[in-house]
């Protein structure tokens, strides 16, 4: 054997890994396939165009869109500050990823005890402005933003730190102030990772369930998003729940396709800690 061919065979993944790898892939593919087998395609149009389904779809798209926007408005500044902070970066980063590792139901309870009628912020809002957050569409958006924002922040934070700050240094030596450096240098460089962060947080917001049902409740056209509608329909009409699940999968695939293969690769790179 030449050294070259030894090198090549040494770089191939060992055969032994193929078995668990195939099992891992099957674990993702088979349940989706199982769902597809249960779809009643004859009733599909009727099930998907029921008022409850349409309300849930519209509500899901609107709330996930709004919460993604909120994620960008709050998450981009947070990521930039986080990546450049001199001290305490580790602690801050741990705080930011908390919603990622925390069960969403716990997040929902936490929001409820802050913004609920008996929470201190909720009480103030109610007394001062007469605003009540729980059981409203705004509560859905808040719950989704809470769980989705870490995805965006992490993608950006990783990209900023990996990219270093050479361009910013050059801009600064040429006399640019912090705001000019941010808007003319940092932001344009961040667009590709930002796009992947947006895709990730939109997908997470779309799938949000636990925090939403705990904090916002479940009411058609107000707080019952697609995942909640799937859960509610599973009690009454399983066919309908299956049809809606199919819809959610289609939307998810659409998101992946829209993101494109390059972006998917970047998303996974961005997610690497």
């Amino acid at each position: 054997m030449t050294r070259d061919s030894t090198l090549r065979s040494g770089l191939r993944s060992p055969r032994l890994l193929w078995i668990p790898a195939a099992a891992g892939l099957a674990l993702i593919v088979l349940p989706v396939a199982g769902l597809l087998f249960r779809v009643d395609f004859a009733r599909l149009p009727e099930l998907l165009t029921s008022q409850a389904s349409l309300d849930a779809l519209e509500l899901s798209l609107v709330t996930a869109g709004l919460s993604t926007l909120l994620c960008v408005l709050l998450g981009v500044p947070l990521a930039v500050v986080l990546a450049r902070v001199r001290r305490g970066g580790r602690v801050l980063r741990a705080v930011v990823v908390l919603p990622l590792v925390m069960p969403p139901v716990v997040g929902g309870l936490a929001l409820l005890y802050l913004l609920g009628r008996n929470g201190f912020a909720g009480y103030l809002l109610d007394v001062v402005a007469g605003v009540r957050v729980p059981f409203t569409t705004a509560a859905v958006v808040l719950a989704q933003t809470f769980v989705a924002m870490p995805f965006l922040v992490i993608s950006l934070d990783g990209a900023i730190r990996a990219g270093g700050d050479e361009y910013e240094r050059v801009a600064a030596t040429l006399g640019a102030g912090p705001w000019v450096v941010f808007t003319r240098v940092t932001l344009p460089l961040l667009l590709p990772p930002l796009a992947s962060g947006v895709v990730l947080s939109f997908a997470r917001a779309l799938g949000e369930f636990g925090a939403t049902i705990t904090f916002a409740g479940s009411l058609q056209a107000v707080t019952r998003t697609l995942p909640l509608e799937v859960y509610a329909q599973a009690e009454a009409d399983v066919e309908s729940a299956v049809a809606l699940s199919l819809l959610l999968i289609v939307v998810a695939i659409a998101v992946i396709v829209a993101a494109g293969p390059r972006m998917t690769a970047r998303v996974t790179e961005g997610a690497r800690p």
């Binding site: 008996n118 409740g217 479940s218 009411l219 058609q220 019952r224 009690e235």
Partner: peptide, 20 residues
């Protein structure tokens, strides 16, 4: 005109007990 339709009766009770 409910503000929310919960998946089971204990969730309803919980929302009242929590004061929401």
């Amino acid at each position: 005109q409910p503000a929310s339709e919960e998946p089971d009766v204990k969730s309803v009770l919980g929302k009242v007990a929590a004061g929401e």
